[in-house]
C-alpha cells in the first residue's frame, strides 16, 4: 500500500461529505467515492478523518478501499486512461493497443508519466464491446482503436495540454 509520505491534504474539504452521510449506515463506499472526487485519490489522512467521524476503524476503511479497483492511493495524471481488456476487446487485439499506449507514454499499468499528464489503468470491461477495442479517457470513450489511432489520440491530448 502506497499510503505513506503524501503531502498533507486540506481535510476541511471533506466536511460537507461527512456531514451529508453522518449517521447514514452503510455509506462508507459512497464517502470514499466523494473523497476520491475531491482529492483525485484517497489520502491516508482522509482515512483517519473518516474513521474519526464514522467510527469505522482505519483498518476497516483501508480494507474496503483496497478491495475495489476504483480507489487509488496516489494522485493520478491529468488524463486517466482506462484501457479496456474485456473479452470483445481482447479478441479484437486489445493487447496491441496496450503495447502501443505503453510504448507511446513510456508507462505500464497503474503508472503515471513523469510530467504528470497521463495515468494508465487496464480495466475489465467498459461495456462498449461493439466498438472494441476501446479506451476511456476522463469519461470520454474512444472506440474501434488501432495502435496508430491510439497513439494519435494521446499525441492530440498532449498538444491540447501543452496549449493550455
Amino acid at each position: 500500500m502506497q499510503t505513506c509520505n503524501h503531502p498533507s491534504v486540506d481535510l476541511t474539504l471533506l466536511e460537507d461529505t461527512l456531514a451529508e452521510y453522518a449517521g447514514v449506515k452503510g455509506s462508507l463506499i459512497s464517502i470514499l467515492q466523494k473523497t476520491q472526487e475531491i482529492y483525485g485519490y484517497i489520502p491516508i489522512d482522509a482515512v483517519y478523518r473518516i474513521s474519526e467521524r464514522t467510527g469505522a476503524s482505519p483498518a476497516k476503511i483501508l480494507g474496503v478501499a483496497t478491495f475495489y479497483s476504483q480507489f487509488r492511493f496516489q494522485a493520478v495524471g491529468k488524463y486517466l486512461i482506462l484501457l479496456c481488456k474485456g473479452t470483445a476487446c481482447y479478441v479484437n487485439g486489445a493487447d496491441r493497443i496496450l503495447d502501443a499506449v505503453s510504448d507511446e507514454l513510456g508507462i505500464g499499468n497503474n503508472e503515471t508519466t513523469e510530467d504528470g499528464l497521463f495515468s494508465l489503468s487496464v480495466v475489465a470491461c467498459l461495456g462498449c464491446c461493439s466498438l472494441a477495442p476501446v479506451m476511456m479517457i476522463n469519461d470520454k470513450t474512444y472506440g474501434s482503436l488501432t495502435p496508430d489511432k491510439a497513439r494519435q489520440i494521446l499525441r492530440d491530448l498532449r498538444k491540447e495540454a501543452e496549449a493550455q
Binding site: M1, S57, P58, A59, G63, F67, Y68, S69
Partner: peptide
C-alpha cells in the same frame, strides 16, 4: 478493537494493522 484489516483483493490480499 478492529485494528487489523484485509488489504487488497484476491491472491494478493494481505492482513495489515492500521492505527496511529
Amino acid at each position: 478493537q478492529g485494528l487489523l484489516g484485509l488489504v487488497g483483493r484476491g491472491f494478493g490480499t494481505v492482513i495489515k494493522p492500521e492505527f496511529r
